[in-house]
């Protein structure tokens, strides 16, 4: 899949994953990898950016194995942002689909 395509929707997929339940970094990377094949390293900077923009809150929780894990939680602002992003995405996908369909019919 085109790398540029991925980059655009990665944010939406991450936000949606965390909306369901709070997740820690690695868990989230695995969840996202199920949907799009993405370089694992790139998700952490994205999480950082979304946290800096207050769409995520983080907290530490002990785990049975290894050091405490940093969990990400979607804030109210994050929910608003996600809804907005979803709307944009659906609209965008619809428009592109419509355009491709029209061209196919002309042919």
């Amino acid at each position: 899949m085109n790398a540029q395509f991925k980059k655009g929707v990665l944010e939406l997929i991450v936000l949606e994953s965390v909306r369901q339940k709070d997740m820690y970094g690695y868990e989230l990377v695995e969840e996202v990898s199920k949907v799009v094949d993405v370089n694992e390293g790139t998700i952490y900077p994205l999480l950082k950016r979304l946290t800096n923009e207050r769409y995520f809150e983080t907290y530490l929780r002990e785990s049975t194995e290894g050091p405490p894990r940093k969990y990400y939680h979607l804030t109210a602002a994050g929910v608003l942002y996600r809804d907005n992003l979803e709307k944009e995405w659906t609209e965008f996908a619809e428009r592109v689909g419509q355009f491709l369909k029209e061209r196919k019919e002309e042919r």
Partner: peptide, 17 residues
């Protein structure tokens, strides 16, 4: 190796900041 190029990764992290 899954992380790919270290330079690109670092660039991406800095971009986030």
């Amino acid at each position: 190796a899954d992380f790919g190029s270290l330079g690109e990764l670092a660039a991406e992290i800095l971009e986030a900041y």
